[in-house]
Nucleic acid binder design. Sequence first.
DNA 1: GCTCTGAATTGAACATGTTCAAGTTAATCC
DNA 2: GGATTAACTTGAACATGTTCAATTCAGAGC
Lengths: 225, 225
Amino acid sequence: MAIASPKTRRGETSRAVILQAALDLFQERGYEATTMRAIAERAGVSLGGSYHYFPSKEHLVLEFYRHTHELHAAAIAPLLTRERDLAARLRGTLRAVIVTCEPFHAVAGSIFSTVANPSSPLNPFGAASRPLRDEVVALYAEVVRGSDARIPDDIAEMLPLTLWLYQMGILYFWIFDRSPGRLRTLEVIDETTDLIVKLVGLANLPVLRGSRRRVLSLMKSIVEG
Amino acid sequence: MAIASPKTRRGETSRAVILQAALDLFQERGYEATTMRAIAERAGVSLGGSYHYFPSKEHLVLEFYRHTHELHAAAIAPLLTRERDLAARLRGTLRAVIVTCEPFHAVAGSIFSTVANPSSPLNPFGAASRPLRDEVVALYAEVVRGSDARIPDDIAEMLPLTLWLYQMGILYFWIFDRSPGRLRTLEVIDETTDLIVKLVGLANLPVLRGSRRRVLSLMKSIVEG
DNA sequence: GCTCTGAATTGAACATGTTCAAGTTAATCC
DNA sequence: GGATTAACTTGAACATGTTCAATTCAGAGC
């Protein structure tokens, strides 16, 4: 092990060069087809070099995520300052996810399977990916908070996490989407974001109160457990 | 490649012996800690031997998955003939999934990640795994059909597939469950099966008609696309 | 009993992620 | 400017999943 953050200028450069080589190769060839040897060669370091900064090949993917997340966050910033309608904010955010990830569509499948493995450090529910997960959840909290929708506190509490899960579902659908321009995914996004907002509104109906309370307390107990 | 089903008595024996050795070792040591060399040694064949019958290490696990499905179907048969209450049928079915899979909890993560890979022919949404998927969906159709619940046709049409998805969600939760006796998963099953039945009942409310129609037609268009 | 053929089996070779002891570099201290 | 030291780099070695050409085996046909 013994993984270090760079302590010198030279180290910083090496880390950046290795990461860039990895990201480029992942995009060019996909995750599995990219070997550590190829990364090392393109980065101009020796095979073992990467392991000084990244504990494993999978950790390089984690950086890959961070990269796309930042692209995504930047892409939707204007929308989030301009738009107040919750459905529109949500729709725009999800559409931007698809647009941002589009260059990696071919790679996404193999990455997904790696990431879905619970024993992988990359697993979205695991500890290693917590910082990034928190950022994404915070982004959805902002999507909700900045809207003019009046949302009960108990729902507002769980909504960002739910939307993060929802985003993962959309991404999984998108991976399978072979339609031109990913039109199907975009349609599904439009329909489901609208439905989500509608259902959140309906949750105040007396007849739904009981189920709503049960669903929310179940989610809460799961998150806290 | 060139994977064959056994053509001779000797071949049948070899296949069975290899599979048994693999399953035993998976349970003893877990999936990752079990090497193909260890499997070969215990089975009394040479390293390459397994590859004559199983395309990969993961296929050995999937073979077992098929087996547990059969165990599961057999386990719930009495319940399905006896019980008529939908919530009870559903709860019993899901509980049985967990009980049946329990010996392989440690292996389950790897199965899941294999199966989740969209580029794998074994992906549950793909064509190759259709037979097994159809079997599971049919099982849930039977869970619904044999109940005394009065369910509108449009819902009844999509419900089995939805429950199959729901089962996968539960299994994924279970993979992460470290609680003694998987009590947390069982609690979640009890709560969610009840909620599902309740929500199906509520779907007839006039105020939910619109959303219900939209959800169902969305699902239908996804399945058909 | 002999031959032939396809199934079954073997194990060396390969590809690739990872480790680590040894070597190199560069900044700091005197 | 020489010594010291921590950071950095190297590449051979290792573990393991997978492949495949060569070999052995067993039954069918005669």
